[in-house]
């Protein structure tokens, strides 16, 4: 597993966000092309449900990663460079989690394919 003080933490959270975003948009588009749920079902259908579940899981994953980075930054033995990456990594995972949750909110408000 990637160390919490590794410089890659500066982009890891947002990479996860980016991949999730592609899955969300592509999943919606392909879902609507292959088996569109009826608009009368509103937001209670397999597609919204699936997208919502993926989003929730991604958010939780990012929150977990943020917490892990935050813990690592607080360890006294870590060097300043490592603490810099861990602290920033925590913030970036946190922001990514927020972005994931916020962007996914419409899943509970709109029918998918109209």
């Amino acid at each position: 597993m990637l160390q919490a003080t590794h410089p890659f933490q500066l982009v890891a959270g947002l990479l996860v966000w980016a991949i999730w975003f592609v899955v969300l948009y592509a999943g919606l588009s392909v879902g609507c092309a292959v088996a569109p749920p009826a608009a009368e079902q509103g937001d209670l259908n397999w597609l919204n449900g699936g997208l919502g579940a993926i989003s929730l899981a991604t958010t939780l994953l990012l929150v977990l990663a943020a917490w892990r980075c935050w813990q690592a930054a607080a360890v006294p033995s870590v060097d300043r460079q490592g603490a810099f990456f861990a602290r920033l990594g925590a913030a970036i995972h946190g922001v990514s989690a927020l972005a994931t949750a916020a962007i996914a909110i419409p899943v509970v408000a709109y029918p998918p394919c109209v």
Partner: peptide
């Protein structure tokens, strides 16, 4: 394009203000 997809991009566009 579907309103739901527009909503994703709408929220993302607002988030970049952060």
């Amino acid at each position: 394009i579907p309103k739901l997809a527009q909503a994703f991009f709408s929220v993302a566009s607002m988030l970049v203000a952060v």
